[in-house]
Design a binder for these strands. Sequence first.
DNA 1: CTAGGGTTAG
Length: 803
Amino acid sequence: MNRLNTRPLIKKCRQINQIKPHQQPQIPSNVASNQLIDSLSKSGRIDEARQLFDKMPERDEFTWNTMVAGYARLGRLNEAQKIFDETPIQSSVAWSLLISGYSRNGCGTEAFALYWKMQVKGLRPTQYTLGSVLRACSNTAELLKGEQIHAHVVNTRFDDNVFVVTGLIDMYAKCERILEAEYLFMKVSDKKNHVLWSAMVTGYSQNGDGLRAIECFRDMRGEDVGTNQFTFPSVLTACAAMSAHVFGRQVHCCIIQSGFGVNVFVNSALVDMYAKCGDLHGAKRLLEDMEVDDVVAWNSLIVSYVRQGYGDEAESLFKKMHSRGMKIDNFTYPSVLNSFSFTADVRNAKHIHCLIVKSGFEDYIIIGNALVDMYAKGGCLSSAFRVFHSMPECDVVSWTSLITGYAHHGSHVEALNLFSNMRTANIHPDQFIIASIFSSSAELTILAFGRQVHGNFIKSGLGSSLSVDNSLVTMYAKCGCLEEAHQVFDLMLLRNVVSWTALIVGYAQNGKGRESLLLYDRMIVSGTRPDYVTFVGLLFACSHAGLLKDGFRFFESMDNVYGISPGAEHYACMIDLLGRSGKISEAKDLLNKMTIKPDATLWKALLAACRMHGDIELAEMAAKNLFKLEPENAMPYVLLSNIYSSSSKWDDAERIRSLMKSKGVTKEPGCSWMEVNGKMQSFMAEDRNHPRMEEIYSKVEEIMIKIKKAGYVPDTNYSLHDMDKEAKERGLAYHSEKLAVAYGLLSLPSGAPIRIFKNLRVCGDCHTAIKFVSSVFQRRIILRDANCFHHFNEGLCSCGDYW
DNA sequence: CTAGGGTTAG
């Protein structure tokens, strides 16, 4: 290119911005035309540039290249390709331009193909070619290609070229290979320039290591390599991620000194940093002082307003964007919609949904995902489902939003079915969805399914996360697998209060209250602060282990030491604890001192206590409240009637039974179920529908004979109907839990524990019988009933015969 | 003419 006397050209370029859209610029000399084409295309007026190009009598290599560059930059790749194909001299510059265009517009495959085609044509790559093609390898899926290019870099002796090494560092960092990036950075022997430094800062920041990013930036400042507008946004992102407000302010000072404070990118990064550090006023001031209304900065502030609980501010900012006639992009809508997810305000969100449809943003995947999430969180599962199905394309986030929506509203079976559909659709799970699936498996206590998902997750090679591990601990604990729960807990590199609480509750539910308390001590030593749920678990542990003194100690400490005021759940545990210890009057006192409204669980605990220790007046009160709170529940009728009977108040007992009948309340039939070879087997009392019925019944006979020899005496008090002793015994023998035990012995290998679930509390006779089975047949049997877990082993039960 | 930056749903 002719570089002589460029001054008038520069002047000409400066004038470009004053050219009115349809005013035809006068055709100057060849060199000046090239400059003009470049300037026009850079200000987005590529079609005018093309007119000029078409009129040029004579075009040089530079002319052609500038045209390719113009189209490539705007993503008009077909036109770029066409010009390239017509270019008389396809130099390596032209190739690089085209490759760069494909790379930066998400056409990595084409860029990569072109790169090799260029080699075949016998053109050697330049630093620019390598830099451009590396960009096409900058995501984890393309790491292998990136490594291939790295090898080619070494072969072509570009491995000490700072420009190329910067591209490599960036590629490795974006492929989540920060160690490789770091190694290459350290190996640069020449003086490192600020672009190289910035790439490293960005790398750390994008790999979630905000601290290293900040340190790297600090080291860079010590090296006196200068800065440009690219240097600051990455370190500001790191400050935002770390909530490093003070350091962020210092960076702000550097920015002002450097003179880059007017750059839009730098400014929007500053707004984001202040907002994420909690300085919303500072962020807003900066936003208002910006010379241009930048949509990114506005989006950023909206996100922070929503996250910090100022949905109204977010909405008013959104409205202001409209009134200022600002461009609204595909990031704006998800940010605003998120505010409605928080408040579950579906009605108001519908306006935004309409706007999205009207402005043609409906088909953006991130907007569809935000809509699905918003509707799902707001409980409008049908709307969520409709949006989900209307989406042209779904990813793992869309599925997760829908699935967690179902799970949050208690439809766990539906959630797991959807997860299976997702796998069939060949969408790969990530940590978010896995955590949600473990939680649903825990709620449904389907261990085998949860285990399979766990196994696949390990095989997938995805790293674990705090929520994955926490939900996994919960799942194993809720399924009665304390060893596994503890194993997962021990392997965790990072734990929070949820992890500790999951295990504390797990031990408590499985009848190991004392272990819960020991864990709590360890948790305090580790410096973790207990929360509301931790105390529910602890008090539950105390009540089930009969630890009255500890219970009161914890109950008092929660408010006194941790400032957590007790809720209905805590009171229910305390009432249960007092009831079990026979301290009915204390329970009554506590009830009267309560500042909150008693809930159903609390009345149930009280009623159960009354049954054991017979306080008719209190029992009547509890039952009456339960009739109102849970009119479908047979339990208060049955218990109250039993309490009357045991005090020989036959008339009252009969009155309650007929009341129950007249209200149409029926006792839920007992049902036990278990998972065998991935299939759910369920049994009702005296069930005769099972395909292996005969085998099961003869196994029950065998069990009865063997345990009677060991000393078991059937307790016919638990039989319901009035019949002769033998018939009573027979009825007892075919209780659903006994059928399940027999089936377990028949179908599970001899070393495997038998895990059974029952919808009601286990009956007293079954409890005794299963204790015998555990010693006579040398089996661990784990029975989860409506109230807690029973771990039967060697003739004993973990509940200490108190449930 | 061509590397490197800011907002992003679960």
